[in-house]
Design a protein around this nucleic acid. Structure first.
Lengths: 349, 349
DNA sequence: CTGAAAGCGCTTACAG
DNA sequence: CTGAAAGCGCTTACAG
């Protein structure tokens, strides 16, 4: 250990005992003839390195096939380039679009992301957050209030930035990107009322808080118009197309004079449409159908399905943007982004 | 620096200069009164730590709220707990089920995964593989031949285990989990022929290698039966429901006597069904429709859609299992897992 | 603009 | 079964 000759064989042996064989920043530095620190700078803050040197470093990196070791970087800087994203469900295509938005923004910023599926349960959410903490994520993109609460309750991550997606936060304390679920439900009620339907029902599965807010807005609209809001069938099970058929059968039994249904998502709407076709119920003459989200089939179904177009991709993109801006220490003008929604009136109503 | 008194303030300052405030393995060790090494063992190989000690350590970890630092672990061991998964598309629900399978297995094994969307282009695949290398993934789960080639071409990861999903490898050199796309296409042809259709067409978008293999099998079946295999419309664009309608219109123009269509996936089949309904073409009397994958709507459409049930979840689960077994150094009995498929004959044929 | 030193929090490889 | 030493490959915090 007291030997100082760099060519000393014993030293080499010692250095090699745990060698991984990977090309490191030290190899690049040696190749160029500068210190490792300069390589690090050329990578992170190129403007602080002489241009001529920068070019030689870039060439050396390519020549040696150097790939930075993220683990070393994360350990040394106590900051990772990983964002933890928590969504209730991957099976639900709704969140896939949001993930695409997140990915597109994070990719261009050099960040990676870890996707956690919470399955709509609080235990699972808490467990996932704990797991992800071990990866020292730079921040969180969440999609429920519960997640926010859990995160803030953990001392280890009370400082980590988080953005809530899909619904809007109360005030400016938490960042959020989404739209008003209540207003969307209300808009659907208004649409049906204006088209003259007098006995609209509500069909829902997977009763997460957002679905319940849509219901709240829908009921409000019906009540305001003097209509009975209690024609509804709610099931806690996971949503799938087939369940739309089942829910339609159920509401037809409990409310035989039901003339329109607001399905809490397009999968259910599709199932309801198929069930109407199967029973020879004419849509929209005998039964109007409204979906939610504008998934790919809504516009091209026969008849085309009236639905609420939601800015899913944008929610992901802008939530990611908000998070990265926060990480960079930029000031956030609007920590609460209402991206709105649009009701697409089609043949099914 | 030569000071040895542990309470020496200057030393504390030095130690604190880059302190992250996180609870580390050293804190836990101090709390229990053992060396950090013992804590590490209690976590990784508990059977090598005295039971009484193990319990005290577990308690200390809970009391202090210790979360292991993955970056440090990865750096020290040169092995991460991250698996890189590359799929062509997230929008396609087909891969979502596979991701669920992957997640379920990896989660129980304590692994995380990074998802990359290759978008069916080779450049993107190469770029993603390079990015993921920086995270020192323990292995790869891939879904195309090109990915395998790229990976094996990079010296940095020629040693990393990889499993190919969806189709089967040639020999035993690479690990693969999937089924024969050619046989599946062939089975669809046989089914249509047996039901008496004489002019079946093939509709496809997103012409990836797997789609082309289905086509190959389908054509083989038609040729064997003495039928003309050239009634087909192929589009390179990404697949979506609406395109099914468009493809049906096109084949009706190019092949007016077409009496059945094999759509390369269920999205296209749904769009084709809607188009038939729109035009008043009776399914299956005037036009039979076959899809692929058995997505949720196929069974409950009106009429229900004949399709090929593919073991998507299982493919993900077993591919992950194969990979982890390899990482653990276990011997792999069957590196090439044919999980098969099943043709579900329904009302649309 | 560039570099020498120290440290991030673990695990490896030995010793005992 | 337990521990002291060294090292993984970067970045921080200073110096110059």
């Amino acid at each position: 250990m007291s030997q100082t000759n760099p060519r000393q064989p014993a030293l080499r042996t010692t250095r090699t005992s745990r060698a991984t064989g990977r090309v490191t920043i030290v190899d690049v530095a040696r190749h160029v003839g500068v210190s490792p620190m300069t390589i690090s700078r050329a990578l992170k803050t190129p403007e602080r390195v002489q241009q001529e040197l920068r070019i030689r470093i870039t060439e050396a990196i390519a020549a040696l096939g150097y790939v930075p070791n993220q683990a070393a970087s994360t350990l040394a800087s106590a900051r990772s380039q990983v964002i933890a994203v928590l969504v209730p469900s991957l099976t639900n295509s709704v969140f896939i679009d949001t993930l695409s938005g997140i990915r597109d923004y994070l990719e261009q910023q050099g960040y990676q992301f870890l996707i956690g599926e919470t399955g709509y349960t609080r235990d699972k959410e808490a467990q996932l957050i704990a797991t992800y903490l071990a990866h020292a994520p730079a921040g969180f993109l969440l999609s429920s209030v519960a997640q926010h609460e859990i995160l803030r309750g953990l001392p280890a991550c009370s400082h980590l930035p988080a953005v809530r997606m899909f619904d809007l936060g109360k005030g400016h304390q938490e960042m959020s990107v989404g739209f008003s679920q209540i207003k969307a439900g209300y808009a659907v009620a208004r649409h049906l009322i204006e088209r003259g339907y007098r006995r609209p029902g509500f069909l829902a599965a997977q009763l997460d808080p957002r679905v319940m807010k849509r219901r709240e807005g829908f009921r409000k609209g019906l009540l305001e118009a003097g209509l009975d809001p209690d024609a509804e069938v709610l099931l806690a099970q996971p949503t799938k197309v087939e369940m739309g058929a089942q829910l339609l059968r159920q509401i037809l039994e409990s409310t035989p004079d039901c003339d329109a249904v607001f399905c809490c998502n397009d999968d259910l709407a599709l199932g309801a449409l198929f069930e109407c076709q199967r029973r020879g119920i004419d849509v929209p003459q005998q039964m109007a159908i409204v979906g939610f989200n504008d998934l790919s089939w809504a516009a091209c179904a026969t008849p085309s399905i009236t639905t609420v177009i939601t800015p899913r991709y944008e929610i992901g993109y802008q939530a990611a943007q908000l998070l990265i801006q926060t990480l960079k220490g930029e000031t956030i003008a609007k920590p609460r982004l209402d991206l709105g929604f649009e009701l697409a009136a089609r043949e099914s109503t």
